[in-house]
Amino acid sequence: MVANEETIRTDEIIICRDVHKWYGNFHVLRGISTTIKRGEVVVVFGPSGSGKSTFIRTINRLEEHQRGEIIVDGIELTNDTRNIDAIRRDVGIVFQSFNLFPHLKVMSNITLAPIKVRKLPAKQAETLAMELLERVGIPEQAEKYPAELSGGQQQRVAIARALAMQPKIMLFDEPTSALDPEMIKEVLDVMREMATSGMTMIVITHEMGFAREVADRMMMFDEGIIMEEGTPDQIFGNPQHERTKLFLSQII
């Protein structure tokens, strides 16, 4: 299961060593090496096509890396379905386009995975779902269909759905990019609350205000590598690379 027991420290929850990925001939990830500690909030940013989305999708095997190692909570990510399933149980993801199941009510959206995968009894799953809906602020929407909700509400349901599996890590792939400005705040509030309560988060976003407040570390991706990383103060105050300066100047 685990590659090298001695080099794993228990607070390193995600370890990536020299991860490469190709789409056909296109080399999208060119040797990503990084570690993420338990409880850390990492904000990933960078120009489009730089591989940020691909990177976080490799962590829960929505994309497959062709070279290098990825170890999540001590389990190595290989072609072994046992490992993949175990990792997916512990990693939640929130997508840019919400991807809620339109034919199920909000309550069923949230309880489907706990019931089928974690084998939770239905009553328990529903109680859990209601707690999560309260936590994200929309308990009254439980019996509605996703199409009846606003974008911000849908994204919050998506967050609740991911949280229902009680993951150790939450991935966010540009969660607010598809939202109207009024709704961005309500989603960021939920994410902020999650960060302060100690969840390990990797967030792809261009909401720099949010990053400055909440991130422990920021990573800039460019052309498949991590161009620069550091604390928000370091990145905003003293960016080292030209590309970072250029990118920041365009979005602030």
Partner: peptide
């Protein structure tokens, strides 16, 4: 390296 009944 993965038993075939678990290999994706």
């Amino acid at each position: 390296g993965v038993p075939i009944w678990r290999n994706v």
